[in-house]
Design a binder for these strands. Structure first.
Lengths: 235, 235
DNA sequence: ACCTATTTGTCCGTATGTATT
DNA sequence: TAATACATACGGACAAATAGG
């Protein structure tokens, strides 16, 4: 093809084809060696590797090298979505790390979604979700404190959402709705998810409610696109 | 801030905050001006702008400048997902452009999902979906020809999926399941969706069936992450 | 229709920082 | 500790697309 694509794209495509015959965890040649092989500057190779990393095919570790990436985790997205159970069912070991818990007056959006009066107190919980020890998601949730007295203590003890809600008298809850979109990770999110800025992530905005329809939780979760597949199935 | 975040990240964050007060279509200062303003090299500004572009916040046009991007389209994802109806309901004008129609023996995956014998004939349809004239998605579908005689003629006449299936005697169909993940667009997909390589896209793999559970369509759709929000709601 | 200045895109080269081995 | 390897930042040069005269 006389179609003169940029050098870095040609290199990326060549590498992508070769990656099809590689195994997850395999290490690529160093940037310097690749530059020598293709007869280009190291930065041109870096541009190509950046594209592959954005596609989730490889990931770089400073000082170590560039490695072939692994396979995704399945995550069913149903009305009764439970993080712990969802992952256990697919044979993964779930985990959770709470980064911060704080109470604050509800934002405009939170008040509206949770059906609260303006500036009513909410408990904000931020953390990351793990699958087999690897970070797959980052969540930021808001709980109405008025309806869930004592929730903060349980959350801070490291208990799961379902368990903590049960301790507050919530026997059951279901997901009312979910809004989904894809974004490129910014620097902060990439840090949480152990990705590179620009990597594709799925953004889920959702609300959970009790059987009476009372809102119990409003959250925004970001999943690492390359490590998670969401499944939407009828029940 | 002595907080040692890279320069380009700090610049990206500053610009992101300022973008919140900008209107879609607004033009940013040139790279050279921004470099002067932040007291850095032009390449450092470019790295920051690249991150914002990957997040879908801005869009660069060579020779013209960098511009603030536009707003997303809503797309409900239910058991009875109908492209035309879904968009009409949100006040958008839907559209579809078929790029190719061809018959071929089913691939291994197609045969398995559609419950066909190996290499049974399927009709493959590829095209793009429009909302208000703008490309929002790219689809590649496979239909079992044995169950849908004459489908090719209707599809080629430019009719919609629902309409074409109706002409083959399918009065109703529902979505059996959907698998979702986020990816970065490669060069080809970016071309179809009028995005830039590396932009976040949502990949939907889905199967539609008739009321008896007979598979009718297996397809993979990619939505432009910045232009579409999927909603998952219980029925 | 043509030219020109402007603006972004690509590529090279160099230097230095930081994490890993 | 030292060598290796990726990350950041700077500088320069030219190509390609755009906009305006």
């Amino acid at each position: 093809m006389t179609e003169s694509h940029p050098l870095w794209q040609q290199i990326a495509q060549t590498l992508e084809e070769e990656l099809a015959r590689a195994l997850p965890g395999d290490r690529l040649p160093t940037e310097t060696r690749l530059a020598a092989r293709f007869g280009v500057n190291r930065h041109t190779v870096r541009r190509a590797l950046a594209a592959l990393a954005e596609s989730g095919l490889v990931h770089a570790r400073r000082g170590a090298g560039v490695f072939v990436a692994a396979q995704p985790t399945e995550y069913p997205l149903t009305r009764r979505t439970r993080f712990h159970g969802a992952l256990s069912a697919t044979g993964r070991v779930p985990g959770r790390r709470v980064l911060s818990v704080q109470s604050a007056p509800a934002s405009e959006t939170e008040a509206q979604v949770l059906a609260l009066q303006a500036a009513a107190p909410v408990l904000r919980v931020e953390g990351v979700s793990l699958s087999d020890g690897q970070v797959i998601g980052h969540f930021r949730s808001a709980y109405p404190m008025g309806r869930l007295p004592g929730l903060a203590q349980h959350i801070q003890l490291g208990k799961g959402v379902t368990e903590s809600l049960a301790a507050c008298g919530v026997a059951d809850y279901t997901r009312a709705w979910t809004r989904l979109t894809a974004r490129n990770a910014d620097a902060i999110l990439a840090g949480h998810l152990q990705l590179r800025p620009g990597d594709a992530v799925m953004r889920l905005e959702s609300m959970n409610q009790d059987p009476d329809g009372t809102p119990l939780e409003y959250g925004i979760t970001h999943f690492a696109g390359q490590r998670v597949t969401l499944t939407v199935a009828p029940e």
